[in-house]
Design a protein around this nucleic acid. Sequence first.
DNA 1: CCTGCATTGTGAACGCACGCACAAGCTCTC
DNA 2: GAGAGCTTGTGCGTGCGTTCACAATGCAGG
Lengths: 211, 211
Amino acid sequence: MARLPLYHRSLADLRHAGVTTVSSERLAELAGVNAAKVRKDFSYLGTYGTRGVGYEVEYLLVEVERVLGRTHLSPVVIVGLGNLGRALAAYDGFDDGGFPVVGLVDADPAKIGTELVGHRVEPPSELARIVAEHGVEVGIIATPAAGAQQVADALVAAGVRSILNFAPAVVTVPDHVPLRKVDVATELQILSFYAERGDLDVRQRAERTAS
Amino acid sequence: MARLPLYHRSLADLRHAGVTTVSSERLAELAGVNAAKVRKDFSYLGTYGTRGVGYEVEYLLVEVERVLGRTHLSPVVIVGLGNLGRALAAYDGFDDGGFPVVGLVDADPAKIGTELVGHRVEPPSELARIVAEHGVEVGIIATPAAGAQQVADALVAAGVRSILNFAPAVVTVPDHVPLRKVDVATELQILSFYAERGDLDVRQRAERTAS
DNA sequence: CCTGCATTGTGAACGCACGCACAAGCTCTC
DNA sequence: GAGAGCTTGTGCGTGCGTTCACAATGCAGG
């Protein structure tokens, strides 16, 4: 499920606070979801708690990390180094979360060759080499909308396993490549929509955009 | 629905290309969704197309903008000016989409008073004044996780109508305030999860995707 | 004016996720 | 050792969104 990262963060906080055991109810409160959902999610993963006591934070954390694939590093390449791309490149959360940035690509000749957070900006022609060389698993698209599909195709061809798209455009990829989209402008419009409609439900749904 | 921004962008592209009429099938292809869904969404909005012909791009675009609340400006204030906050402040998509940034707030004394994309960085104590003065409707949280809830409370107290949260933390707000969350680290973990599960459980996944 | 074609609008079935509510099971106390 | 008190694990009902399939409807051409 798409809630696992939430649980992971809550569990990490708990461990950091020295808590060794947690009930589904407390965890649900921290993650902002329903308690039954928490229990069902974990039971679905085959992870077991102790009735009458709760879940062991340390053990559960390891299990969640295993399922999330966080036990190994997933190298990331960022394509497109405008404002957003540069912010992403400088974002600390990547390395901390096991997603080291190992490559930066941009088509602008003025940017190619410049240094950014310890990496040299490479031209698109080097994409395949970077992916192969560093075992890149995730490609991040931070280009303008116009180039997004082209970049996605190149990433797939180069062999990345999944794609995170920040460009405000619909891109299509083969079924076997997980694709998620983050679009700030869209989020704002959705908010605006709900504000307009007043008291409608604003549940955020984990939609998987794929084709 | 949360798909309206997608339709809006597709329609804008079509208009830009000089297309005056579009079928639900073509529009579905552009937006990356099902054709029946497109028709149902529009019928739900009370917007009408013409059978045998399709939808009139121009008219539909106006209708969508009306529902999205894009006929008026929704001023935005950004709280937290780290890497992400600065990228957001510099992001062109805001102004273009009808969400002008009218205020920047950060708690760091070193940042307060500095100039950024035409705005002076203000301390948190000025938040309420900024919101009231500019009629701010949307608050954007781009602080570290630790301060997110506090900022959210301040934004709600100041009277913003909706909140977009980029901090990697669960924040709770009153029911009447729409809240959406964008979390890059979470998105990556979700991708990693799918990639992991795809390998371990290909068969089940293929069956489900078969629809 | 009438027939054929294209496309919308929607009724209905399907599937999925959510959440309640309860039984199963562990632990602690007396 | 037995009972009380929690907390997990889960079967089941419910509601929502998605999608199929078809009837309704407008347009073009003869």
